[in-house]
Design a protein around this nucleic acid. Structure first.
Ligand code: FES
Ligand code: FES
Lengths: 137, 137
DNA sequence: TTAAAACCGACTATTATTGTCGGTTTTAGT
DNA sequence: ACTAAAACCGACAATAATAGTCGGTTTTAA
């Protein structure tokens, strides 16, 4: 089966943690401990998410991170997109620096539309679930 | 976006080629040329597919490969599964040597069920399309 | 003033992917 | 019987992606 990178899994776990604790700002140390994610790696991941605008930070002592929107407004697809980077399920599908190895077939290719269809279905699934859905139940 | 390996893309293209030419046995050379896939790499890929039983081979001069079943009986999901190997969209989901890094959370984890759900939706999409669907239209 | 935090860039290690090579075996055609 | 074309096989190599680490700087509350 296709694999989701552990980076993305870590990222989602961190986001879920923030959603569960949306009252306060959570430090990396706290998240790292609770979710058992290597501190330094988590930092890189969270920093990336922050740049995307999904979360915000407060610096200095007692600083930390918190969601920029309410959990019900954050689709899991957004998180995956930020962390997985790269456009396109396959390289032939247009690319925003996921490295498009320019395909010699393209026109005659019978598989391109297929992958596109799979990609759409995947995106639809991811975008139909929010952080709020995850922490409910 | 999550990426499908080029191995799997090559493999699907090869299968589509066999489906289009289901009358005859096709040599690797032929497929390799038509689909612009590196010969030696294609060999490895096709050999893997053959072991799975989706295609059969005929050795010796004038040998080649052909589909083991009719195109309408071959789900794209089967091809992807064979080539992508590994069970589970994420490592926490049970694994048939996709390397399960045993997860310390598991019980409390809110994301596992989510990934499982995505995986199911993906598999459903892949299994709803056959080689016959791809070569039609 | 200090300690805890975010922030940053460079670096390393490991693993996965993609591809190559040199052969052996099988088989149809001559 | 010989030859050429094919499948078959295992080991290797190059590259790229992932996962993780390190040594710092800056900001801020207490
Ligand atoms: S493989 Fe590139 S368009 Fe189909
Ligand atoms: S991260 Fe392993 S079960 Fe959720």
């Amino acid at each position: 089966m296709i694999r989701i990178s552990t980076k993305t899994q870590y990222g989602l776990r961190a986001m879920v943690y923030l959603a569960k604790n949306k009252k306060k700002t959570c430090s990396l140390k706290e998240i790292s401990k609770a979710e058992k994610i290597p501190f330094d790696y988590l930092e890189k991941i969270v920093s990336r998410i922050e740049k995307s605008g999904l979360i915000e930070s407060k610096r200095g002592s007692h600083g930390g991170y918190f969601l920029a929107r309410s959990p019900s407004k954050v689709k899991t697809g957004e998180i995956v997109r930020v962390l997985e980077g790269r456009e396109g399920l396959v390289s032939c599908i247009a690319d925003k620096n996921g490295r498009k190895r320019n395909c010699p077939l393209s026109k005659k290719c019978l598989t391109k539309k297929f992958w596109l269809r799979i990609q759409n279905s995947l995106e639809k699934a991811l975008n139909s679930i929010t952080l709020a859905n995850l922490i409910a139940k």
